[in-house]
Design a protein around this nucleic acid. Structure first.
Length: 219
DNA sequence: TTCCGGACCG
DNA sequence: CGGTCCGGAA
């Protein structure tokens, strides 16, 4: 029986949740830590981000004031395990400077701002693109925005659920239009997509045989 | 040795 | 558009 598109997005979610269980993602100790992690994880496996964050923690430097004060070169050394450390150090500094300039240096003010305005300010930061901005908004600020990424595009386009040539905002809008506006759902769903993409929906040699999403578009 | 991945830059 | 920035996994 063919389902409405609306239900298919939820069907995919149900399949993934049944297979993987709740991911309870991004267990940063603070919102600040989650925000830092969102920048560090660009093009990078999370395991390396954890090493970088551990370095900062062990040095007692994982705070807004410490990182804002720190020389970019020094910060780069702390976050070296995350890869792209020079460019990410600059991006982190740019982000903190925006919070200083626009929100009196108070992260809570950024997060208390409206979704549209906080998103706009995040996107002004050189080094913060759509995915990083949305990850900060969803996972640190707990705002109802859906994070899409390369994995999301690959999984959904392969199943014919979205157009192959869709862009970030169109893809995101399809999720926002199809799902109830719940932060916890958006949080879990993105994490589940990452899980299935890394294990089954690989870029090369996808393992469709045992994939929990096989033929989901026909269900 | 190649592959993988966000965002910016030329 | 293609090139660049990086480290770890395949």
């Amino acid at each position: 029986m063919q389902q409405e598109n609306n239900n298919l997005f939820l069907r995919v979610y149900d399949r993934l949740l049944a297979h993987y269980g709740p991911q309870e993602w991004w267990p940063g100790e603070t919102d600040f830590e989650v925000m830092v992690g969102a920048v560090l994880t660009q093009n990078t496996n999370w395991i390396n981000v954890e090493k970088a964050i551990a370095n900062l923690k062990n040095g007692g430097q994982l705070s807004f004031s410490s990182l804002h004060r720190m020389d970019t070169d020094v910060l780069a050394e702390y976050i070296r395990p995350a890869g792209y450390y020079n460019i990410k150090a600059r991006r982190l500094k740019n982000l903190l400077q925006m919070v200083v300039d626009e929100y009196e240096g108070e992260l809570a003010f950024l997060f208390a701002d409206s979704l549209d305005d906080s998103r706009k300010n995040l996107l002004q930061v050189k080094g913060v693109g759509p995915e990083t901005a949305d990850a900060i908004l969803l996972y640190a600020a707990r705002k109802p925005i859906f994070v899409v990424d390369t994995y999301t595009h690959r999984v959904f386009s392969r199943h014919g659920l979205v157009e192959e040539d869709t862009d970030y905002y169109s893809l995101q809008q399809e999720f926002l239009d199809s799902l109830p506006e719940e932060v916890s759902l958006f949080n879990e769903y993105h994490a589940l997509i990452v899980a299935v993409a890394k294990e089954f929906c690989k870029k090369k040699k996808p393992r469709c045989n045992n994939c929990p999403l096989q033929r989901v578009e026909e269900s």
